[in-house]
Simulated assay, not measured.
Amino acid sequence: MSPSALSLSVLDLIPVRTSQSSAQAIAAAVHLAQSADRLGYTRYWVAEHHNMQAVASTNPPVLIGILAAQTERIRVGSGGVMLPNHSPLVIAEQFGILEAAFPGRIDLGLGRAPGSDPMITALLRSSGAVSEVDAFPRNIADITALLHPDGASLSLTSGQEYTLHATPAATAMPEIWLLGSSEYSARLAARQGMPYVFANHFAGDGTTQALDLYRRGFTPSESLDAPRTILTLNVSVADTRAEALALALPQMQQMARLRSGLPLGPLATVEEAAAAPMAPALLEMTERMAATWIIDEPVAAATRIRALAAQFGVDEVMLQPIASAHTGADAATSPGRERTLELLAAGLLHGEQLPAELLAAG
């Protein structure tokens, strides 16, 4: 892979930190997406998580509409829609409308996990109109057919054909990606000829095996003639490694609590995280994260990202910027996350030095 071949994208859970409202967190996400757009990133995806005090990304289609309307070039999509929570027809209609409104800029990333706890899953499914996990392959095929300009058809018991379209006069489709963190998702993406994103940012141990399974089993489809993959990474980049670590500590502590089954609150600020006592088990978890996530100064971080992209054979890397903010920072911005994107764009998208007018434009 040549150095110029690497593309960068962004995954955003829209973190909500201490003393920050949902409105301010979304405003910060809009500002971050605009920075990514200006800096030359390829995509900006939002996740689907429910009932978490530190995450405002609950409804990808709504957020995608907000972000796409306030950016110009960057592709905007879901990373991902958790399909077992939703009716395939509703998802097809939502993303068909988004593609019509923002042609050539919409991605539909689909996942199989529920994205929340059993209580929330039950509430999401209370209407009885949602799909079961076991129906995942069929529902992906249904969404693809419904989004196609030709639409889909059902055979009725009377022998008649009933035609369905996600939108009445579609001229194009969003790009549909399969997301996963298991061999199941890799095999399914290969079998259906879909582009594939392995969730390396939280399941890194299985990345090599999953991508190998995907590539070996890939079957060309109407939309894709060869395997296409994205690598996801957690990143915090600052002018020094020490500063990058300080900015990343709130998110590492949050993840350690999540994995330990402890109560979660809003994302801490840098100062709050530094002052928080940590049990030895949680401290050990954060140390492991610090060793595997990309937390460093710009040159070392860019070098490591290039090495991982080459190791896994991908030409696109999706970064989750996990830097928190200092106490007192403007609540409608996320300066640590913005700085992470700026520094990595300088090293990976624009050579060694980002043009001064781009850095000043933010």
Score class of each variant (00 low, 15 high):
D12M: 03
D12G: 02
P15T: 08
P15D: 13
Q20R: 12
S22T: 12
S35K: 04
A36Q: 04
D37L: 10
R43L: 03
I74P: 04
G80V: 13
L89T: 13
V90I: 13
F95T: 07
F102N: 10
P114F: 12
I120V: 14
V130W: 00
S131K: 01
I140F: 06
I143T: 04
L147C: 11
P149A: 12
G151H: 10
A152M: 14
S153V: 10
T157A: 15
T157K: 14
A169C: 08
T171F: 03
M173Y: 01
S182W: 11
Y196K: 01
F198C: 06
T207K: 01
T219E: 13
E222A: 15
A226T: 12
V235C: 15
S236K: 01
P250C: 11
P250Y: 11
Q253A: 04
Q253G: 02
Q254S: 12
R259T: 04
P266D: 13
A276F: 03
M285P: 00
A290G: 02
D296P: 07
V299C: 00
T303S: 14
L319K: 05
A332W: 03
P335N: 09
E338P: 00
T340Q: 02
T340A: 02
G347C: 01
G347D: 04
H350D: 07
Q353T: 14
L359N: 02
A360S: 14
